[in-house]
């Protein structure tokens, strides 16, 4: 069987894994998004304990490898009778990890909005909460898109680490196939190619989104 026949042969199974990879990415980036915003707001506007918790969380998750975080969730927790499926542990691990990074991107975006706008909103009688919802976040979410795109691609790539806790995603499918036909290198070449294509498609798509929602004069300073 030459390389192309092999590719044709294994592609269906790999694409099945790709779907899992995409699901894993989508779920964990969403989890990270919600948590990330909460952490960023907590760090910026929260009272002392909340702010300290947020920055501690961010520091810890950014300072330790994803692999170890996944192992803690998947191998560590069962010691205390908390058993997660590898898919759930994967989402949780990737999501909690991504939240820390996303929080920093959101914080940067929020801080790039002038304090004057917060004051102006308060001056027309908006509450703090309304100001954050109507003035700060709509701007921050636009400003953050370029760095957020990076984070999405990063998560897509790092979802491969979930293979190490046996989540049935693209990497795992590759390994599974290769263990049967012993053509490791070629199989992973195809796997690499699929990731490459996925990353290119996602980054193109995000560029389009960025252009769509662009507002004159609203970019990250610097």
């Amino acid at each position: 069987m030459n390389f192309f026949e092999l590719t044709y042969d294994i592609l269906p199974a790999l694409l099945k894994g790709t779907v899992v990879t995409l699901e894993l990415t989508a779920c964990s980036i969403s989890l990270g998004f919600v948590l990330g915003i909460a952490l960023a707001l907590g760090r910026l506007y929260g009272n002392r304990p909340i702010s300290a918790f947020s920055s501690g969380y961010i520091q810890f998750f950014r300072g330790t490898p994803l692999l170890v975080q996944l192992f803690i969730l998947y191998y560590g927790l069962p010691r205390y009778d908390i058993r997660l499926s590898s898919f759930v542990a994967g989402i949780l691990g990737l999501g909690l990890n991504s939240a820390a990074y996303q929080a920093e991107y959101f914080r940067g975006a929020i801080q790039s909005i002038s304090r004057g706008q917060m004051m102006a909103a308060r001056a027309i009688g908006m509450s703090r909460f309304k100001t954050i919802m109507n003035i700060i976040l709509p701007q921050a979410l636009r400003i953050v898109i370029p760095s957020w795109s990076n984070e999405l691609i990063y998560t897509l790539k790092y979802s491969s680490v979930a293979y190490m806790i046996a989540a049935p995603e693209l990497m795992a499918q590759g390994k599974f196939i290769a263990a049967e036909n012993f053509r490791y290198f070629e199989v992973f070449l195809v796997v690499a190619f699929i990731y490459l294509v996925a990353v290119l498609i996602v980054s193109r798509a995000l560029n389009v989104v960025e252009k769509r929602v662009r507002i004159p004069g609203l970019q990250m300073a610097q």
């Binding site: 790539k157 680490v161 293979y163 290769a178 490791y184 290198f185 796997v191 690499a192 990731y195 990353v199």
Partner: peptide
């Protein structure tokens, strides 16, 4: 572009299995 787009883990496997290939 290539080295940034392919996950680290996949690169590891490619080099690991590729060298003997």
């Amino acid at each position: 572009q290539i080295f940034r787009s392919i996950p680290a883990l996949v690169l590891l496997f490619l080099f690991f299995f590729g060298s003997s290939f």
